[in-house]
Design a protein around this nucleic acid. Structure first.
Length: 366
DNA sequence: GAACCGTGGTC
DNA sequence: TGACCAAGGTT
C-alpha cells in the first residue's frame, strides 16, 4: 500500500490543491444539483449519477425534484410513482433503495440526512463513494469520494499501475485522497477531481495540454498517460431466448404482468413472456403450451410480428414477439392487468417494452 | 472476489 | 459494429 503511493511525495500538495480547485471554480459546469448544497438533492443526484452520464441524468433529476421536492415528499410518495420517475434510467434497485433509505432518514433522523460516515454508510444504496460524496459536498467533511473518474485521474497523476477493475484497488485511491484532499475545501477538491476526469483527463485522448495539474502529473511526465489506468476486461454476456406475447381480450385490451420484487428489472411491468431453453424453432402450439405451463392461461397465438434485442450489462435478451388472443375471463390481480395502450402511461416498463410497442405499431400499419 | 444489476452514447 | 464507457452498490 505504501509502496504504490511513493509518487505522492513528489507532489507539492498545497500547490496541487490550489491548481486543481482554482481550475474547478473557473471551469465547472452549471448543473441542476449544484444550485445549492441541500443534502437531499446531493444524495438524489449522486444515486442517479452512478454509472450514468450527466446529460442523461439532468432531465430525470429535474423531474424527480419537481415531483419529490423534499425528503418528506419522497418518504410519503407512492411506490409506483417513484418507480415511474426512474423509468428508463436503469439499475432500478437504486430507486428502491433510495426510497427505503429516505423513509429511514425521515423517521430515524427527523428528516435530516446524517453527517457521520457510519450513519450515512448504513443507509440502503449508499456505498463508500456516495457516502464520501454526500459528506464532502453537502457537509464539507474531508472524506474521499472515489469513483471511476478519481481512479483514472489519480492513476495518471501518481502513476499507479494497479488494476482498477479489482474492488480491492479502491482502497489505494482512498488512501491517496486522504493525503491529498483539501481540508479547507473538501467539496471543491472532490468535485474538481471528478470534473477534471469528465472534461480533461478523459479515458481516451486526455487533453493534457489544457490540464491545470499537468505539472504535477507523473503519468504525463513519463509519457504513459494513455496507458493508464490499468483495467482488466469483464466476461462476455450470455444470451437468453424469450418469446413475448401481446395478448388481447375480446375488447382489445392488452394483458401486462408485473415482474418480481427482486432481481432483474424488479417491480417493472412487461408483456407476458417465456424463456426458450433449447435453441430450437418452436411451433406456435408449442409456445402456447409454455404459456399454459408457466401462467395457467390458454392463449391462441396469431402471428409473429418480429424480434427485438435487449442488451444489459451482463446478459442479452433475444425476444421474439407474437400477438395472441385470450378470453377476458383471465382474472386481474396484483401482478396481472388488462390495459389499453393509453393506460400503459401509468406503469413503469423497461426499455425493451417500448421497442415491442413500436414493433406492434409498425406491424399494424402494414 | 465475482456475479448481478440498465441504458444510451461513442469511436 | 462491437467493445467500451458513465459521479457504484449489493449479494
Amino acid at each position: 500500500m505504501v509502496n504504490e503511493l511513493k509518487n505522492i511525495e513528489k507532489i507539492s500538495i498545497s500547490k496541487f490543491q490550489d491548481d486543481l480547485i482554482s481550475w474547478f471554480k473557473a471551469e465547472q459546469r452549471e448543473l441542476p444539483w449544484r444550485k445549492d448544497q441541500d443534502p437531499y438533492k446531493v444524495w438524489v443526484s449522486e444515486i442517479m449519477l452512478q454509472q450514468t452520464r450527466v446529460d442523461t441524468v439532468i432531465p430525470y433529476f429535474n423531474r424527480f425534484i419537481e415531483w419529490f421536492p423534499t425528503i418528506n415528499h419522497l418518504a410519503n410518495a407512492n411506490d409506483d410513482k417513484v418507480l415511474k420517475a426512474w423509468e428508463g434510467l436503469g439499475y432500478y434497485s437504486r430507486v428502491r433503495n433510495l426510497h427505503s433509505a429516505v423513509k429511514e432518514v425521515n423517521e430515524k433522523y427527523n428528516g435530516q440526512v446524517p453527517n457521520t460516515p457510519k450513519e450515512i454508510s448504513s443507509l440502503k444504496g449508499v456505498g463508500p463513494y456516495t457516502a464520501g460524496a454526500i459528506l464532502s459536498i453537502a457537509y464539507g467533511i474531508p472524506e474521499p469520494a472515489v469513483d471511476g473518474n478519481v481512479m483514472r485521474v489519480l492513476s495518471r497523476i501518481l502513476s499507479i499501475w494497479e488494476d482498477i477493475a479489482k474492488p480491492s484497488t479502491r482502497k489505494v485511491f482512498e488512501n491517496a485522497v486522504r493525503q491529498l484532499i483539501s481540508h479547507d475545501e473538501p467539496s471543491e477538491f472532490n468535485q474538481a477531481l471528478m470534473e477534471l476526469g469528465a472534461l480533461i483527463c478523459t479515458p481516451t485522448s486526455p487533453s493534457c495540454l489544457l490540464c491545470p495539474v499537468r505539472d504535477h502529473c507523473q503519468g504525463f511526465h513519463e509519457g504513459v498517460e494513455t496507458e493508464l489506468p490499468i483495467k482488466s476486461k469483464k466476461n462476455s454476456q450470455r444470451t437468453v431466448e424469450l418469446v413475448a406475447a401481446i395478448i388481447k381480450d375480446d375488447h382489445g385490451k392488452i394483458l401486462i404482468h408485473k415482474r418480481s420484487e427482486n432481481g432483474l428489472l424488479a417491480n417493472l411491468w412487461e408483456f407476458p413472456n417465456v424463456e426458450i431453453h433449447q435453441p430450437t424453432v418452436l411451433e406456435r402450439a408449442q409456445i402456447s403450451d409454455l404459456f399454459r405451463e408457466s401462467f395457467e392461461m390458454n392463449i391462441k397465438l396469431e402471428k409473429g410480428i418480429g424480434q427485438i434485442e435487449h442488451i444489459f450489462s451482463h446478459l442479452i435478451w433475444n425476444i421474439r414477439v407474437y400477438t395472441g388472443l385470450i378470453s377476458s375471463t383471465f382474472q386481474e390481480s396484483n401482478e396481472w392487468k388488462w390495459v389499453s395502450f393509453d393506460d400503459m402511461e401509468d406503469y413503469a416498463f423497461p426499455v425493451s417494452h417500448h421497442k415491442i410497442v413500436k414493433l406492434y405499431n409498425d406491424n399494424k400499419k402494414k
